[in-house]
Computed example of a mutant assay.
Amino acid sequence: MKARAFAYARPQTLAEAHAAFAEADGDASYISGGQSLVPALAMRLQAPRQIIDLAGIAQMRGIGVEDGVLRLGALTRHVDALRHPLIATHAPLLAQAAPFVAHPAIRNRGTLGGSVSLADPASEFPAMMLAMGASMEISSPEGLRLVPADDYFQDLYQTALEPGDILVALHIPCAQPGHRCAFDELARRRGDYAMVGAGIMALMDGDMVADMRIACFSVAATPVRARNAEGALIGQRLEAESIAAAQRALDEDLDPPDDAQISPSMRRHLARVLLGRLLQRLEATP
C-alpha cells in the first residue's frame, strides 16, 4: 500500500508548528525521524491531511548540561545515545540501552523524542526515562511545561501529550558518583522487541542502597516502575538475600497481559530472572 496524499509543512519554530496544526483542524501528524510514522502511513493505519516536519526547529536540538540536568533535544537521534560523550558521562543507563534498540539503520534516523512520544510499551528508551527519573519538556500553544516520567506514561500509546502538543526535550538528572546502573533485555533475536527488559539506577551509600529506581518494559501497557522491588532493596546491602527478596516483590509489581507469544506467568518468571542478573551485576560493580 501507499500513503494517501497529504500536505507538508516544515516550520522553523514551535509557534509555527502549533499554527500549522491548528490550520489543519487537528487532522495532522508531527514527524521527526519517521521510523514509526512512515510505516503507519504506508499501511494507512494513519492518514492525516497534513504532515508537520519538526526537523527544522532549533529549540528541539542540542545536548547540554545545566544545573545538574542533562537536556536532550527531542530531535537527538538514537545513535547519539551510543556515541555522545555527555550522554555516556551523565546518562550512562541510556548509553547502555541504546545498542539494544532495533538495528543501525533505525538508530541512525530514529529520534529519542519520537520514541518517547510514541511510548511503545516494548521500547527501551521510554522505560529508561522512568528509571532515570527524567522529565519531559512539552510545548503547547499556551507555553512550555515539565512533566515527570512517573506522570507521563498513562496507558497503551497514551501519554501526557495532548492533541497538538510537541515533546521538545528530555530532562535527565545527571548521574552522580554514587550511582550504579544496569540494563538488559531478553529477546528471541537481537533487534527484536524484548520479551522482557529492565533498567536500574541505584544510588549507593558505601555498600548500602540509598535509593533505587527499577523500570521494566514489555510487561504491561506502559513502562512499569517496580516499586515493591525497589522497596525491598532500599536500606539494604546488595547481597543474595536482598536480591531474592526483590525478585519475590517483583511479582507484586507486574501484571502482564495474556499474549499469543508468551504467557503472563512466563513473562513474570523471565522478569525475575532478569532482575536477579542485573542486581548481581550491580553488586559486582566497584
Rank of each mutant, 00 (worst) to 15 (best):
L186I: 07
G62F: 00
S135G: 05
L93K: 04
Q12V: 08
A15N: 15
D258N: 09
L233E: 03
T111G: 12
R180H: 00
A42M: 13
A271Y: 03
H269A: 13
T159C: 10
L278R: 10
L144A: 11
Q176N: 06
A24T: 12
H78G: 14
R281L: 13
I31M: 07
R10I: 01
A169S: 01
Q12L: 15
V79M: 06
R49C: 14
L144S: 06
V196S: 11
A284Q: 12
D259F: 14
A97Q: 03
M128S: 01
A98H: 04
A95H: 05
D184G: 02
A244Q: 13
L274K: 01
M212I: 03
D165F: 09
C181A: 15
D151M: 02
I63G: 06
M1W: 12
G143T: 11
P286W: 14
R225P: 02
V79S: 06
R109P: 15
T89F: 03
L41T: 01
L250M: 08
D27A: 14
V168Y: 14
A47P: 15
D251C: 12
L75I: 01
Q247T: 05
Q96F: 07
M266F: 14
F100I: 08
S123A: 05
D67Y: 05
L144F: 11
G26H: 15
G276A: 12
Q261G: 14
R268N: 12
A15G: 09
L275F: 02
A149W: 05
A160P: 07
I31E: 07
H18Q: 05
P104Y: 13
A9M: 07
F21C: 15
A194I: 01
